[in-house]
Design a protein around this nucleic acid. Sequence first.
DNA 1: AAATCACATAAGCGCGTGCTTATCTGTTTC
DNA 2: GAAACAGATAAGCACGCGCTTATGTGATTT
Lengths: 104, 104
Amino acid sequence: MIENEIFRALADPTRRAIFEKLAAGGMNASTLREGMEISQPAMSQHLSVLRGAGLVREERQGRFVNYQVDPEGLALIAQWLAKYRAYWPARMEALKVLLKDMDQ
Amino acid sequence: MIENEIFRALADPTRRAIFEKLAAGGMNASTLREGMEISQPAMSQHLSVLRGAGLVREERQGRFVNYQVDPEGLALIAQWLAKYRAYWPARMEALKVLLKDMDQ
DNA sequence: AAATCACATAAGCGCGTGCTTATCTGTTTC
DNA sequence: GAAACAGATAAGCACGCGCTTATGTGATTT
């Protein structure tokens, strides 16, 4: 069950920070590491977890590996969230209609 | 940071199962336990974590405690998800507009 | 008020997780 | 092809998490 891997992946604050940084634009692991106090293996391991959860895609570019946000993971969270739309606050009420279309 | 507690809470499959069961309607801890192979203390601990994450509300009713889904937690997930709306798949494109209104 | 019930808390345990250092793989450059 | 570089993998370790059994707390019942 990939849903489990998604939530597990996002449960770690460092991993969410990495994901957020990637959301600003795709980049390789070294660039990603700049400004973050994290070792190279740790970054590699985190990216591996994010990738396994479908939250991140990787693409070899020479000796670099470019990482970018994978929409599939986000879509699965949206699907999960949609199951509980009956409990969403009133100000999100309008979303219900659209999500109804979404889950044919 | 409550965002961290939310994702941590949902990282456990048992806790997600409890949450999903509660989404069908509020109920007390004993009723919630029916059909689930889980000890009474384990259920109590899980509910405590879900409560701390703002995903569940509790309400004393005599010697029972009624639990129900707390919309606040779901709203925070929606907010988190909204940050990455630029990466949502095309079929969810329409959501972007609505969410833009939401996050002023 | 004693017994029972619903639930919370305490304490301890095994296992998974995230980190580290060390090493390996694959690519580029000279 | 040797050196340098980007990144992955291995192995080990400390800590947190979810579970258990035992006990505590608060409400109800008789």
